[in-house]
Nucleic acid binder design. Structure first.
Length: 839
RNA sequence: GCCGAAGUGGCGGAACCGGCAGACGCACGGGUUUCAAAAACCCGAGCCCCUUCAUCGGGGCGUGGGGGUUCGAGUCCCCCCUUCGGCACCA
């Protein structure tokens, strides 16, 4: 055995030992209480794992290892979310088949997760691109189809000509593609949709039942965007009618015009002959505008045209002009609004611009200056006069319902989920289009519908999936009756496979079901779900939706999949960019002068803190960091740089402290290079014993609260105490090693073994603090005079307030400040301080 | 613009319920070791001032800025500034 700390020898040895002993494999039927610790599974991209990834996986691993030592049987699995655009793009740019790219990337990811000692049950590894997995993704899709939750529709989609494909909303940033920054335009296309809106209310309500950060819940609530109001029917003069949705039916008397979205079906029908040319030009221009241009237009420059038509305000009976304007969105409400310029800022701006009348119907503001959107008393509103806003809303809605002119209504911002992609690398949607025109599901027994081999997996550029170019795959028969049919060529989005994966880990090899019911009941719900905030709405909303659908089908036992959500912060690093915005690696930067410059040609650079990623050339790979120090040091470092839920900056020196701590721990527990440490079997006593129990107590509480940075600092403090002890009591050393085990597992195992143990430290029990050892016999009180510290005094812990005050007054420097003064008040805070108020 | 989170030494950060601000670490300075250096180890330190040969000691100021509550405020209340996230014509 080497006397030196040699992580390159120690770490792989323990990794092997853990795997061979099946230390992290969980068995069904284990009588211990369960804990399901889940970390968001990664896209196995080609760039490998960097320090930012190490932070997430270290957090969930510490949670899992700690729970094991606390006596739980812990399910802590890992898998690969390998379908979707990133994997496909990588494959295209590197000229290899996505399946091959995924395999290589997975191997690389696994190796790197191994370097930092992640304690996964690898026997439960899943891969969303494996047919034995996506068979069940397809199977769940068919259940959605049966329940009417999947449907086809012509939808305006984000078409990216440069990528030759349709993008999801979350893949479009400011009208450009997330990857590559190419322009994106909106065109209608036949798409598969999932009716997530049918679950809007339940997705909203059940947020109250989960233990998630408030800000995530708020984001989801806002995303779902429930608003209550009324639909109101407006009759058009000369025939026809349209409905508007409003949250302010109380202001109906103040509606002086209506606005239709340019896409509204009624526009062309009601436009009068003299206005037709102008209206058509406006509608055409609006269609040409990308989403981005429409947004950029901002509130100040509202545009619109008059259709020439008039509608009847059902409350006043008066004529109101009908306009077309792109500030009204086709996709929300009814695509038409009643404009109330007196009490809506947008309508007010529009009315100003086009000189439309503004009427005050709620007192309390000055509608000549600005819209009054707040509360007040109804005026100029007939039967509503004198009511407040809330009462007027109710009265008006009743009035509309009684006359058949409207009704109470609820609307959501949430849209149905666009569920098809015109790409190769996704789950084929298991549907057949029969020659007779019927669209039918592929029978369950014929699943999975596997991806065919294809020569070109790039997008065709025409908008059709590459699958469309393989007649022998597309042309098939309906297995029910042998009649000819074409396969659906759309594939599912990347978020499909991740919308139920936590269930597959529970029963990953089941060929008869996506997950055994008994096992599901035993393991669900996920107790802690660790991941980044970037999935706060997308993934987490989809996942909850699928869970609820499966719950309604009686297939799972819980309405919510993730009981507790823990969001780790982003790891950022200095990013050097030139004038063109191109990033440069720190190694190429000369920072010796007043302005940082590129070494090669002296170009000036700017620095900013940005999320670590390969593309920004500001990342450091896990393998590189491990090679420089050790896997344990990397784990400690990413946990020590700051609180786990805050954003943290990684710098070159972030590894220093944790690395030295490990060297010091080794020297203290194992011994210096030239010898072994002197251990004694006599138990720790006195201050050392107190220090050990204080550390047990503190580290335990910190780990319970995800306070990894402070837990590590408490271990550093304990180590200082151990270093001073000679000989070192064995029990103190062993307790230290056990406390260290979840955080730095390799070195802890090695030290545990060298302390003479044959078992694994990761399977031993967590130490328990003796409460008696946590109380001190004496306490040091700060002594203040008029709130300023003038000294301190040590008294027995049992001292009374009077004794404490007496002792305080005896302190030399305190006495000086009391001289010639009268004490008017004496404040004693037990074990903390004495404050003497004088005059 | 709206909503949310956060501003603490040169830096990352700590501080349970309002009770000695700066734990722990980095960088820094000094030292040990070394032919020398690296590594490692030990010691020091918020800033300013007084006292002192150096010490020891004492005082003032300090948690983005301004006000307030309190014996006492990083922590509570009001106003303002900055940074970072989210949403952004959702009627």
């Amino acid at each position: 055995m080497s006397p030196r700390y040699e992580p390159t020898e120690i770490e792989p040895r323990w990794q092997r030992r853990w795997e061979e002993s099946g230390a992290f494999a969980v068995r069904d039927g284990d009588p211990r209480p369960k804990k399901y610790v889940l970390v968001m599974f990664p896209y196995p991209s080609g760039s490998g794992l960097h320090i930012g990834h190490a932070a997430v996986y270290s957090i969930s691993d510490v949670v899992a290892r700690y729970a094991r030592m606390r006596g739980f049987q812990v399910l802590h699995p890992m898998g690969w979310d390998a379908f979707g655009l990133p994997a496909e793009q990588y494959a295209i740019t590197h000229g290899v088949h996505p399946r091959e790219a995924v395999r290589r990337n997975v191997d690389n990811f696994k190796a790197q997760l191994r370097y930092i000692g992640c304690s996964y049950d690898w026997s439960r590894e899943i891969d969303t691109t494996d047919p034995s997995y996506y068979r069940w993704t397809q199977w769940i899709f068919l259940r959605l189809l049966e329940k009417g939750l999947a449907y086809e529709a012509e939808m305006p989609v984000n078409w990216c000509p440069a990528l030759g494909t349709v993008l999801a909303n979350e893949e479009v940033i400011d009208g450009r593609s997330e990857r590559g920054g190419h322009p994106v335009v909106r065109v209608p296309m036949r798409q598969w949709m999932l009716r997530i809106t049918a679950y809007a209310d339940r997705l909203l309500e059940d947020l109250d039942t989960v233990d998630w950060p408030e800000f995530v819940k708020r984001m989801q609530r806002e995303w779902i965007g429930r608003s209550e109001g009324a639909e109101v029917v407006f009759r058009v003069e000369g025939g026809g009618s349209f409905e508007v949705f409003t949250t302010r039916p109380d202001t109906l008397f103040g509606s002086t015009f209506c606005v239709l979205a340019p896409e509204h079906a009624l526009v062309s029908r009601i436009t009068t002959a003299d206005r037709r040319a102008e209206v058509e030009a406006y509608v055409a221009a609006a269609a040409r505008k990308s989403e981005r241009e429409r947004l950029a237009a901002d509130e100040k420059e509202k545009t619109g045209v008059f259709t020439g038509a008039y509608a009847v305000n059902p409350a006043t009976g008066g004529r109101v002009p009908v306009w077309v304007a792109d500030y009204v969105l086709a996709g929300y409400g009814t695509g038409a609004i009643m404009a109330v310029p007196g009490h809506d800022a947008r309508d007010w701006a529009f009315a100003r611009r086009f000189s439309l009348p503004v009427v005050e119907v709620i007192s309390g503001g000055d509608v000549a200056v600005a819209a009054h959107e707040g509360d007040g008393t109804l005026v100029a509103s007939g039967f509503l006069d004198g009511l407040d806003v809330a009462a007027a809303k109710r009265r008006m809605t009743e009035w509309l319902e009684a006359r058949g002119a409207g009704r109470r209504a609820v609307r959501y911002k949430l849209r149905d989920w666009l569920f098809s992609r015109q790409r190769y690398w996704g789950e084929p949607i298991p549907v057949l289009h029969r020659a007779d025109g019927r669209t039918v599901p592929v029978p369950d027994a014929a699943l999975p519908v596997t991806l065919p081999e294809v020569a070109r997996y790039e997008p065709t550029g025409t908008g059709e999936s590459p699958l469309g170019g393989i007649p022998e795959w597309v042309e098939t028969v309906d297995p029910r009756d042998g009649s000819p049919a074409r396969r659906e060529t759309n594939t599912m989005p990347g978020s499909a496979g991740s919308s139920w994966y936590w269930l597959r880990y529970i029963d990953p090899t089941n060929t008869g079901s996506f997950c055994d019911r008994e096992k599901e009941r035993a393991w669900m719900p996920v107790d802690v779900y660790v991941g980044g905030t970037e999935h706060s709405v997308g993934h987490l909303l989809y996942a909850r939706f699928w869970q609820k659908v499966l719950f309604d089908l009686g297939l799972v036992s819980h309405k919510e999949p993730f009981q507790r959500l823990y969001n780790q912060g982003v790891v950022v690093a200095k990013t050097w960019r030139d004038a063109d915005g191109r990033p440069h690696p720190a190694a190429d930067v000369d920072t010796s002068g007043p302005t940082p410059r590129l070494r090669a040609d002296g170009r000036p650079l700017t620095v900013s803190l940005e999320r670590m990623s390969k593309s920004k050339k500001n990342g450091i790979g896990i393998d590189e960091a491990v090679a420089r120090t050790s896997g344990d040091a990397v784990r400690l470092a990413v946990l020590f740089i700051g609180p786990p839920d805050a954003d943290k900056e990684w710098t070159d020196s972030s590894l220093e402290g944790p690395w030295r701590f490990l060297l010091r721990a080794w020297r203290t527990v194992v011994g210096p290079e030239d010898g072994a440490v002197a251990l004694t079997d006599a138990p720790a006593t006195g201050t050392l014993r107190k220090a050990v129990h204080r550390a047990v107590d503190g580290v335990t509480r910190d780990l319970e609260a995800f306070g990894f940075n402070t837990a590590i600092s408490k271990l550093m403090v304990l180590l200082n105490e151990l270093q001073a002890a000679a000989p070192l009591p064995r029990d103190a050393a062993e307790t230290f090693v056990r406390l260290l085990a979840p955080l730095a597992p390799h070195i802890a195992e090695e030290m545990w073994a060298r302390l003479g143990h044959e078992d694994l430290v990761c399977t031993t029990s967590w130490p328990v603090a003796d409460p008696a050892a946590l109380v001190d016999d004496t306490v040091t009180l700060a002594v203040q005079v008029n709130g300023k510290v003038r000294g301190d005094v040590t008294v027995p812990a049992a001292a009374t307030d009077a004794e404490a005050v007496a002792a305080a007054k005896a302190v030399e420097n305190v006495r000086r400040h009391l001289e010639g003064k009268t004490i008017v008040k004496e404040i004693v805070v037990a074990k903390r301080l004495v404050n003497l108020v004088v005059r």
